[in-house]
Write a protein that binds this DNA or RNA. Structure first.
Ligand SMILES: [Mn+2]
Ligand SMILES: [Mn+2]
Ligand SMILES: [Zn+2]
Ligand SMILES: [Zn+2]
Lengths: 149, 149
DNA sequence: AATTTTATTGAGAATGAATCTCAACTGCAT
DNA sequence: ATGCAGTTGAGATTCATTCTCAATAAAATT
């Protein structure tokens, strides 16, 4: 969270955008956070310390954070977009339990290799993977088996 | 589109649901269609012949079609859920061009094998894959190169 | 340091996909 | 044909996200 701020500042400058207080606050909040977050959670987190940052600004800032490589869109859950920061957090595959909502993250380098090959065949240049599978986690699968008896 | 109707009828019966006229109309429309569709497109398509089927009914029917294995949720594009029918349409990987919106479909058996291994490690039982990658298609990549000169 | 330019903000209104409500209707078992 | 349950269309509602706009703040210029 030092490098990031420098990079962010550079990104903003390159786009003729200003490094404003809300933008700094939001950036900092992103890196306090580990794991996934949606706009509402981020808003509440920020509001604890900064009563004057609006939801609209968060919504407006998210695309900048994505474009500058600070965060990525990770999933969509319960009709909400979910993000995660990229720094020290390699892209990964998500297993989403449709029963309990648990999200399991798995590194996916081999999977990505396969996908890259397919993309190359199509002349497609990937900038972002969005890989998930839905189903039942270990626990929920066990429960299901029990209830079937 | 014969087998399907039988299967659908069976599914409905097993759930104590009724095979109503709108449900038949919607099912038929699904199979007229190839490729992807969203609720609005489906609605317009149906409306050409059946002025009395409501959007609400389509929204209500989609989960049934998914549960009975007729269609799957495929993507999310322009803030809309997109579906495709499963019959004779194996699951596949989507490459989505962020510039022109083109969607390229690729079979993904090898990718799925890798993912299945990862899932097995976690004791996770997959019921549905949701695999996509965003980036630039061949054409848009070329355009970009030109405009950079 | 003051001024000018330009981007940004918060608040609340607007949008739009998806869901819900409810009284009228229909499929289907008897 | 009758009755019960599930279903429908129409429109209201929800809720995430986007937009509007007058007030404000950051950077550039003097
Ligand atoms: Mn993740
Ligand atoms: Mn497809
Ligand atoms: Zn679970
Ligand atoms: Zn393209």
């Amino acid at each position: 969270m030092k490098n990031e701020k420098v990079l962010y500042r550079e990104y903003l400058k390159s786009k003729n955008l200003k490094l404003t207080k809300p933008r700094c606050v939001i950036l900092a909040a992103i890196f306090e956070n580990h794991g996934h977050f949606n706009v509402d959670e981020l808003y509440e987190q920020i509001r604890e310390k900064h009563k004057n940052v609006s939801r609209a600004t968060i919504y407006r800032t998210i695309p900048l954070l994505i474009e500058s490589g600070m965060i990525r869109q990770s999933l969509r859950c319960e009709s909400k977009d979910i993000y995660e920061h990229t720094y020290g957090n390699e892209n990964h595959l998500h297993f989403i339990c449709t029963n309990c909502g648990k999200i399991i993250e798995t590194s996916f380098s081999k999977v990505a290799d396969q996908i890259d090959k397919l993309a190359k065949n199509e002349g497609f240049e990937i900038t972002e993977y969005s890989l998930a599978a839905r189903g039942l986690c270990k626990k929920c699968k066990k429960k299901e088996l029990k209830s079937e008896k």
